[in-house]
Design a protein around this nucleic acid. Structure first.
Length: 386
RNA sequence: GGGUCGGUGGCAGAGUGGUCAAUUGCACCAGACUGUAAAUCUGGCGGGCUCAGCCCUACGGGGGUUCAAAUCCCUCCCGGCCCA
């Protein structure tokens, strides 16, 4: 893997990531495909929606179908029919999110499988071995990700352990067609963040991630910390903010100098009938869309917006048809990839700051306007109903 | 015509003298979702208010018993089943 930065605009960067499965322009958003599928949409649909790189997950795939089976079947790319780059998360996040089902020591994390309760042990070396079996383009170090309510002692310990594990990951990793990224922890403590980043930098990884964000802290807290946290990372290496986020979070992070993102929001919210638009989200289950012939966004150009009305999408969710989640997932992924494309264009043209401001203005103007718009639309639909 | 069982909120279906404005499911309405234990979860769902409380109208219609009835009695209407 190679990474190069072509243009900077303030601290925002335009770059390219060369992987064994293709080139990715950054800043990039990676849809999440935890279980060897970006839920609800095919690889073709994913590519058509503009996705270039996606995520898979160590923990989930090790449990089912098993990383050895995936290796036997030709690796994750072939197994799931996605030929673009894949980044696999290490299972570190599951150490956090499956908190009731695990125990952590310096050796690793012991899980009770959330599927059948069987014991499953994830050590740093094992996380590497599994990801090598999966054959992702980028593997992540096993880390410990404390929640935002963790005590300072716990956060400090998570930093210590994440560094310890990163060393083991680096030393046990074999595949040279796979890059390994380290994950910086430290919660909301800048000193810890810096300490962790410097220790990780000394281990000389090809890329670095910020972990431990969007785990319960406020968006304002995260936004405030990002510029410093990003600045602690090596300039010439790709920077990945894990699990983030909403469009406004991504804009803030790009401004801070982040290159890569992943988040379940576009696909999860899509399945749950919520569509992203420039002017805020649309909840397609809501009755106000019943007679709305407009597409989700008139200027979107995704498959969903090119062919279907809000009324139709509303109908699909009303009758619980599986096409509804699929079409909204397609739109939401397209929405995110378009956001990233516009971000890259803006950086290239040296107007990222203005772009970010205009984007925020668009949203807040819509929020102000939509009070009236929704009000009148609402009363109009009530009139037609009675 | 006789017998019998039954009629509960949009629907299905609990409750069978007070703790019932009435369990639950569906439907409906709204909200949440940030390295996916999520096509999930949460809230609302008779009306009104000076709303952690109070008032009104409610369990087919009418009447009655009782301090108190969706729950007991009488009667009428409607429906299922059985007999003629």
């Amino acid at each position: 893997m190679r990474f190069s930065i072509s243009v900077t605009d303030g601290t925002a960067r335009l770059g390219r990531l060369d992987t064994p499965h293709g080139v990715v322009e950054t800043p990039v958003f990676m849809p999440v495909g935890t279980r060897a599928t970006v839920k609800g949409i095919t690889p073709d649909q994913l590519a058509a929606a503009g996705a270039t790189m996606i995520l898979g997950n160590t923990y989930h795939l090790a449990l089912r179908p098993g990383d050895e089976i995936i290796a036997e079947l030709g690796g994750l790319h072939r197994f799931m029919g996605w030929n673009g780059p894949i980044l696999t998360d290490s299972g570190g996040f599951q150490v956090f999110s499956l908190t009731d089902l695990r125990k952590i020591t310096d050796d690793g994390a012991v899980f009770r499988s959330h599927i059948d309760g069987q014991i499953f042990e994830l050590t740093p070396a094992k996380a590497m071995a599994i990801q090598e079996n999966l054959g992702s383009d980028i593997a992540m170090c096993l880390d410990e990700c404390p929640g935002s309510d963790a005590t300072p002692e716990k956060v400090t310990d998570a930093v210590r352990r994440s560094i310890l594990w990163a060393k083991i990951c680096r030393d046990s990793h074999r595949r040279d067609d796979q890059a390994v990224f380290a994950i910086v922890q430290g919660g909301l403590d800048l000193r810890l963040r810096q300490e962790c980043a410097e220790a990780m930098a000394q281990l000389d990884f090809p890329g670095y991630a910020l972990g431990g964000f969007s785990v319960g802290e406020s968006p304002e807290q995260m936004h405030a910390l990002l510029p410093a946290c990003a600045s602690f990372l090596p300039t010439e290496k790709p920077r990945y903010l894990m699990g983030v986020g909403r469009p406004e979070d991504i804009l803030a992070a790009v401004a801070a100098g982040i290159d890569m993102f992943d988040c379940v929001l576009p696909t999860r919210n899509g399945r749950n009938a919520s569509a992203f638009t420039r002017t805020g989200s649309l909840r397609l289950r809501n009755a106000c869309h019943r007679r709305d012939s407009r597409p989700l966004e008139s200027d979107c150009g995704c498959y969903t917006c090119a062919h279907f009305s809000r009324a139709y999408l509303h109908h699909l969710f009303q009758v619980d048809e599986m096409l509804g989640p699929t079409l909204l997932s397609i739109h939401n992924v397209a929405f995110y990839t378009r956001l990233m494309r516009e971000i890259r264009d803006a950086i290239r043209e040296g107007r990222f700051a203005e772009y970010r401001v205009s984007r925020a203005a668009q949203r807040s103007a819509a929020e102000r306007g939509s009070v009236d718009a929704l009000g009148s639309e609402d009363s109009a639909s009530r009139l037609t109903e009675t």
